[in-house]
Nucleic acid binder design. Structure first.
Lengths: 231, 231
DNA sequence: CGCGATATTGACCTGAGTCAATATACGTGG
DNA sequence: CCACGTATATTGACTCAGGTCAATATCGCG
């Protein structure tokens, strides 16, 4: 599924390895193994023992938390080049979320202990990892604030803008989000129901801020959407 | 406010320095400067340039996010020995939250660059920091899930249990949370209003799960509270 | 003891959840 | 290439948790 060229490309672009010499990356490459997943397949389950660190070589991975009542929450959608899974490997740790192949996915993954060794040997790598975690922590805190104080319309606007920045490509209809994104996905991302997500999306479309259809969304008025998020 | 003995004690117990030899900690100590804050004083503002890493030497610090509408969100309450502020110091970064002295507070703080140097020289320290960040990220994700799917009663139960674990001391009335905690604090922690927080707290008290009064809370039936959080 | 900050309580209102019926896009196979 | 069937999306009517506004009660400090 991924050939050697893609592997080296992906690994070299992983934010924490960027800056390492090619030869090092080749060494590190040997520690990674690759695997493909069909759409909808589960990469790992919440609460199973956290053993590996993954990188998305191709496709999109969503990180979910489940509840017994069946209302799932999507914490993040990851794009090519992003990583997930066990960064920390404090032995007996378990994954705190479920990783789901949202599209067909190819991953590269490394044993937690091996990754720790890399960290010990390359302090700049460790610092990069910290920076990324700090960034993710900020995003999570931002989401906490949003969920605490804003309306669903505001949350949706925020999520769409984030996704637009991350996965948007200019298109004749607007900034098209390159990810199949249904109403239920939007609901899981904003802590609401598919019905409410649908209503609000229709509203946003009526206001000319977005264009949307079956499992796709495009942003047509970014400043307008951004204005909604000002709480 | 903090004498040398306390400083060394606090620094030595900071999770990321634990394990370093005493002599090293003395060196590191020289890089830290101390400062006291009156109750309610602000340690740093959200969006101001993030220059320093802080540790709580004494008192309690709350990390807040503000909104223009005035509805604030409390992201965390920090106890003696916990750290906050700029871990990452990617130069032009700004603080993503406001740090508030919830009680009289004494902090030890270090210049971001100096901390980075320590990280580079001591890989195990960097790995410890990563572990802590991973833990905080989990907590934030857990809060996202709670805010997305649970009732206010469930969120309150969860927050109280967390605080009980972190700051609880056995007492004749129950597990007393060692932190002045008013209804508005609880509201900011759970994304609701003081009125609703008040109603739910009364309810929990009526059910015999907690005891509460003016700015204090004790848990009297921990399993009972825990049962509420199962979503 | 009296005052101000904190907490409670009530009445009312609204955003969003729920349940249910209907409409529409898209992939598939004939 | 079209028609069908299914997954997805929309829309409506109703309900309710929790927000809002406002009045009252209470704690604990000076």
């Amino acid at each position: 599924m991924c050939d050697l060229k893609l592997r080296l490309y992906i690994l070299g672009r992983l934010p924490f390895f960027s800056g390492l010499p090619d030869s090092k990356i080749r060494d590190i490459n040997a520690l990674f193994s690759e695997r493909g997943y069909a759409m909808g397949e589960i990469i790992y389950f919440e609460k199973s023992p956290a053993k590996r660190l993954y990188a998305v070589a191709d496709g999109h991975v969503k990180l979910m938390r489940h509840t017994v009542s069946g209302k799932d929450v999507m914490l993040n959608v990851l794009n090519q080049g992003e990583f997930f899974g066990s960064l920390t490997h404090a032995q007996d740790d378990n994954y705190s979320e479920t990783a789901h192949a949202h599209t067909p996915v190819c991953t590269l993954s490394i044993e937690g202990n091996d990754f720790r060794q890399i960290l010990s040997r390359h302090p700049p790598v460790a610092i990069k990892v910290m920076d990324i975690m700090a960034h993710r922590l900020r995003e999570a805190h931002e989401m906490v604030r949003l969920l605490s104080v804003s309306s669903i319309e505001q949350r949706l606007a925020h999520v769409l803008l984030k996704l637009g920045d991350k996965l948007g490509e200019a298109d004749d209809v607007g900034l098209l989000i390159q990810l199949p994104l249904g109403r239920s996905d939007l609901a899981e991302l904003t802590g609401t129901t598919t019905e409410t997500a649908s209503r609000v999306m229709s509203q946003l479309q009526k206001e000319g801020l977005i264009q949307t259809g079956r499992r796709w969304v495009a942003i047509t008025n970014k400043p307008g959407l951004a204005a909604l998020t000002e709480i």
